[in-house]
């Protein structure tokens, strides 16, 4: 079938992409928009390495057809923070050793950002639950939990990242 044009807001910028409507948001982000920070680990909603936010909600971009993302506002890892201004979650991942091989990290950071938006002072259990769709094979999660706890404190103290 034919390609169609879809407009969506990606990391605050209006974008128009041309793609078949069943193209996965993941592929559009990576291949059409060059936003390769979003990763593919499984393609079946299991690993979370393709996590992005759609209108502030955490989703697996491998399971979203682009037609359903049209008109929404999307945040990928590239929109979370910049070299010169890390998001507190990114800063905390760096400091606490939350990233090892780094392949789960973009998705994990988005899940953490999402969690802290919904629940600014999470308990350990809430952190464990908030990240439960993001598999990490390297860290055993402990440093990641520590990073989320640290980021929560930083954000609460209002320290700019």
């Amino acid at each position: 079938m034919s390609m169609r044009e879809f407009s969506l807001r990606v990391n605050g910028v209006e974008r128009i992409v041309s793609a078949p409507p069943m193209a996965r948001l993941l592929d559009v982000l990576r291949q059409e928009l060059g936003l390769t920070g979003t990763k593919e680990g499984c393609g079946e909603g299991e690993c979370g390495s393709c996590s992005v936010l759609i209108n502030g909600e955490l989703v697996n971009s491998c399971l979203v057809p682009i037609a359903q993302a049209a008109g929404t506002s999307i945040t990928t890892i590239e929109g979370v923070g910049a070299h010169t201004k890390l998001h507190p979650v990114q800063q905390a991942f760096l400091q606490c050793g939350g990233a090892q091989c780094g392949i789960c990290t973009p998705g994990m950071i988005l899940a953490a950002v999402h969690l802290l938006e919904k629940c600014p002072n999470p308990t350990r259990e809430q952190i464990e639950e908030g990240l439960n769709g993001n598999l990490c094979r390297c860290t055993g999660y402990m440093r990641i939990f520590a990073a989320v706890e640290k980021a929560a404190t930083t954000i609460e103290a209002g320290v700019p990242g």
Partner: peptide, 16 residues
């Protein structure tokens, strides 16, 4: 970590 910054920014480039 040396390459940590690139990793938390999503800027690290993997093969795909």
């Amino acid at each position: 970590r040396k390459e940590g910054l690139a990793k938390v920014l999503g800027a690290a480039r993997y093969i795909d």
